[in-house]
């Protein structure tokens, strides 16, 4: 727990009678892209606000680059860039003015800003908007400006709360590429999202938060292994006799469900012999009058894993 750039150690937070976070611990290494997912009200934003120092009354410890988050010297703040969920700027500011102010507050000089502002605006796709008033920007553009201010001082850690929400598909693609590029250059990215396919696309590691508890942390492959997902089989039938339910008695088969017409999802027992069960299943399907079009181990999306987890399914 001490070798990460970001370390959360047994962090708990209560709002009155509500336990928003309960002993949440994880660490994130340099250059990692950590996706943080969980249902509404799970505590994602609370975790993030604690991580960036906006919430100060919590139990446990948070450090960034070996500095406790409560340090007042300014070193911690200079190490992080933050995009809030509903990023907001004073209405009178232009894009350029907002970036200049935030850059100056982060200690950037005039010369650095003259280079960095066009750079980050080009990166997020807002080079033409530099002198526009923020109040005249669309919601998606404001979101991108929020990302630009987080990147401006080139911090080693970027914390993004729902960075892809409200963006059109092209912008989401662009932001995901920015996140990957940042990681490639050694920047650590922590982000929360409800768009699980996007999290699966970019995150090198994922944490699933449920009711204030961090249940699972790992790569998508590790999460699949946790659920024993490799032992699921998807079958497409060219002819469905409707008798496939009889095959649930085959040794090693846990359940068979029809997920769509002519499409079956076979879940095997955790300790089942995959080859043996597959062999029996194919013979069984043919013997009950079904014809098989395709047959392969299922590779579920992060969304399916997530639904299983928050639905209370734990191996």
């Amino acid at each position: 727990m001490t070798d990460g750039l970001v370390v959360l150690d047994r962090v708990s937070k209560r709002y009155g009678n509500i336990q928003a976070l309960d002993n949440v611990s994880f660490s994130i290494g340099r250059g990692e892209i950590f996706g943080y997912i969980g249902p509404n009200g799970a505590g994602k934003t609370t975790t993030i606000r604690i991580m960036v120092g906006l919430l100060r009354d919590f139990e446990g410890a948070v450090s960034i680059g070996d500095h406790p988050i409560a340090d007042k010297g300014g070193d911690v703040q200079r190490m992080l860039g933050y995009l809030p969920q509903d990023v907001a700027f004073q209405e009178w500011r232009t894009v350029d003015h907002a970036l200049t102010t935030f850059g100056r507050l982060n200690g950037l000089g005039k010369e650095e800003l003259a280079l960095r502002i066009p750079e980050v605006l080009a990166l997020v796709g807002l080079p033409e908007e530099r002198h526009r008033k923020i109040v005249h920007l669309s919601g998606g553009m404001v979101q991108k400006l929020g990302l630009a201010q987080a990147l401006l001082h080139s911090p080693p850690l970027i914390v993004l709360d729902e960075p892809l929400a409200g963006l059109d598909p092209a912008s989401r693609y662009q932001v995901k590429n920015i996140i990957r590029e940042l990681s490639r250059k050694g920047t650590t990215v922590f982000f929360s999202s409800h768009i699980l396919s996007d999290v699966q696309d970019v995150a090198t590691r994922i944490g699933i938060l449920s009711w204030g508890r961090l249940g699972l942390v790992g790569t998508v492959e590790e999460l699949k292994a946790y659920f024993g997902i490799e032992k699921d089989i998807e079958v497409f039938l060219s002819k469905d006799s409707g008798r496939w339910k009889e095959l649930e008695s085959i040794e090693g088969v846990k359940s068979i469900e029809q997920t769509a017409p002519n499409r079956l999802f076979v879940r095997l027992e955790k300790d089942a012999d995959m080859d043996e069960a597959t062999h029996k299943l194919i013979h069984g399907l043919l013997s009950v009058g079904c014809q098989i079009r395709s047959f392969y181990p299922a590779s579920p999306s992060l969304e399916q894993l997530y639904i299983r987890y928050v639905g209370g399914e734990h191996p």
């Binding site: 906006l54 300014g74 507050l105």
Partner: peptide, 9 residues
Amino acid sequence: VYDLFFVRP
């Protein structure tokens, strides 16, 4: 609006 100020020094 102050969030972006408070996360800075």
